[in-house]
Write a protein that binds this DNA or RNA. Structure first.
Lengths: 230, 230
DNA sequence: GAGCAAATACTCTATTTCGAGTAATCGAGT
DNA sequence: ACTCGATTACTCGAAATAGAGTATTTGCTC
């Protein structure tokens, strides 16, 4: 299991709210939403209530009161404990100081992109660039509005961070597209040839049993690490 | 539920392997590991076997044979179906062309960083920069080795992508640190003052009930959206 | 004052995910 | 020939997650 007994980042957001003042879970959810935190921390009811329960079980928060108005569902108000404050500060410190291994979907896509022909990949990545530019522009517009409302940067860093990452992604993908187009991208020729053969009815399995024979000397790397004399 | 009946990216990796040739699950896992794909796609046995089962249930793969050697556990060899090939190509196309909303831990951290005093945040982010530089250098060394082995770029794009993102992160965080230090970062003064009051025993709750009174005119934004005349 | 959409405040359950556990076999050394 | 660690190949159950569903109340219009 993870080092923290409650691992979901939503738990950190809960601690953050309760560090300000006692609240009931639904109030936490609306507070986070109002402040735009659901942009950076995944929030859904199922997780919220189980995370709150887990925090309580581990003594990081306690119920302060349960009240009801009329026949409505009970509202349970929670408050943070000393241990909870400590956990909040320690966890936040870790998030800020220590880069974590994260798995993004583009990384997954890039790592398997050899499965599609290069021209198709170029087309798809080009489309991504368009999408990225659109999103970047809409983030910039939203940032403008926030700035005009006098919202200080401390409340919008996350979105500036996302903007910076998306900008870097756009630059990277643009470059990759350009280099596949010019075949400057390492391996493009073998990659293209392989999909041409496949389009002509030769299975990948067959190609892979004798890569050099089908694709030429450059395909030597495709040979499994050790299939010696048989 | 997600648009795809099997949503785990590991399922895409499975389809990718079976698109090359039939394999049994354990062989899939070692293949992915050998090729370094576990760097970009989370792989663990529990998920692997349930994902394979789900793919089979939905007709994207079928069992080709189950064999056993001696008293060892059965090896079930799977092969991809036509529907599976289609799903593979469509899914991969989507990953490459469409930016997805992802939740990174730094984004979560930044969005809650006001909960720690600015000097502490500076210290932590500085530490992160050190860590980032170390990781970048080790990625560069690994890239060097791969290049010398003649491994073409098509097999290492993912890691170049990660390198580009980490570089952008380093630049962003470095800039934020610099600007908090110089108090050029919007909101720094109120932020610092708030933690000073808190260190002197005033609770956040108390501060937030009258932000302007405690923190000055600049703290007007901290007032909830609508607590009118009461 | 009747009707109806939105907001309030959760609950429930089907999946998914995780990773430790198991059990057999292989190979290298003594 | 035997032992000991690595590898092979999966199983299992606890825990986390997602998000649809429920039931009440409020506010607004006509």
């Amino acid at each position: 299991m993870s080092r923290r007994r409650v691992a979901n980042p939503l738990a950190l957001a809960v601690l953050s709210c309760l560090n300000e003042r006692p609240m009931h879970p639904y109030e936490i959810s609306t507070t986070l939403r109002e402040r735009g935190k659901e942009q950076s921390i995944k929030l859904n009811y199922g997780s919220l209530y189980s995370v709150v329960e887990a925090l309580q079980k581990h003594g990081l928060i306690t119920t302060r009161a349960t009240m009801r108005a009329g026949r409505r569902p009970e509202r349970t108000v929670y408050e943070i404990t000393t241990a909870g404050v400590e956990e909040f500060e320690d966890w936040l410190a870790e998030l800020l100081s220590t880069p974590m291994r994260e798995f993004t979907s583009l990384e997954a896509g890039l790592s398997l992109m050899a499965g599609l022909p290069p021209d198709e990949v170029v087309r798809l990545l080009d489309k991504r660039c368009d999408n990225l530019r659109i999103e970047l522009r809409s983030m910039e517009a939203a940032g403008q509005v926030a700035a005009e409302m006098g919202l200080p940067e401390i409340f919008t860093v996350e979105s500036h961070y996302r903007h910076a990452l998306l900008t870097a992604e756009l630059a990277f993908v643009t470059d990759v597209v350009k280099r596949i187009r010019s075949a400057e991208f390492g391996g493009t020729k073998v990659w293209r040839r392989m999909h041409e053969l496949h389009a002509n009815g030769i299975s990948f399995e067959e190609i892979m049993t004798d890569p050099v024979g089908h694709l030429g000397e450059e395909a030597r790397i495709l040979q499994g690490p050790d299939q010696p004399h048989t």
